[in-house]
Amino acid sequence: MKKSVILGAFAVAGLSAGMAAAGTLDDVKARGQLNCGVTTGVPGFAEPDANGVWQGFDVAVCRAVAAAVLSDSNAVQFVPTTGKTRFTALASGEIDMLARNTTWTFSRDVDLKFEFTGVNYYDGQGFMIPKELGVSSAKDLDGATVCIQTGTTTELNLADFFRSNNISYEPVPIETGAEAVQQYTAGACDVYTTDASALAAQRANFEDPDAHVIMPEIISKEPLGPLVRHGDNEWGDIVRWTLNALITAEELGVTSANLAELAGGTNNPEINRLLGTEGDLGGMLGLDGDWAERAIGVAGNYGEIFATNIGEETPIGLARGLNAQYTDGGLIYSPPFR
């Protein structure tokens, strides 16, 4: 126990705050634990299950990074953050990375000084309305009351959309997704707008899903991805290429079922480079050769993670759509492992 640390913290702050922070990779290794920022709960993306274990699509990214760096997918301290606290938590060093369905935007990347390490889900903002309203296009929503979550990009997109179409609306600001659904189903607003993935997930759980329709218009681009702080490129590379390894694994047909077999060596040089039997890509990252094998071993490749957490077989029931591999007409595309 180091209770004296607490007492002396203010005095010590003066000494150590002046020292340059060591690399995040070294910090994580020394700590033996990855501090990963997640949401306080978004169905399918990050939620603690009945046993208190974090599950979800974003959570899988954290676990893959932990497995790559620390060889243990459970060596993750999940730090729940809200829309308001997520960026300060990352900037202040409380967390090493943020995987919290956060939209990659110019100002967050440049002005807030973060580095987005890729996109793990391409989303877009949509509208849901009760079928009985009989509206077929979002442009007919003049004068509607709209339920919207505060402090998110959806709020700004909504204002832009209505302004550019010269129609008016009345926002009903709401803090969490669950409250928004409650307000919407109680009739407090005509329209509920948020990312289309969340709309689909929530509609699937309505008492009568068929009484509600999701408008065809998608009014924004919402590339969601993990992010790290500016200025530590080595650490950024590790997070970026761990995500790329999951994506490449799907492209090359590396699954959790055949992983062990393929790791023994194959005729495909790219699989060999990915799994460390050829070349020294892991060494360049400051990790060992098996890093990608461990990352894929946690929950399989990108496609498997998608299917188990948010895919069509789950209650969330999302189709791959934009999030299919580029070979299948989607946008999921990893630079080559070479």
């Binding site: 978004v42 603690p48 659904v181």
Partner: peptide, 13 residues
């Protein structure tokens, strides 16, 4: 209530 329970896949709504 606001976080994990209302957003659990089983207990949405």
């Amino acid at each position: 209530i606001r976080g994990p329970i209302q957003n659990a896949t089983e207990w949405i709504g």
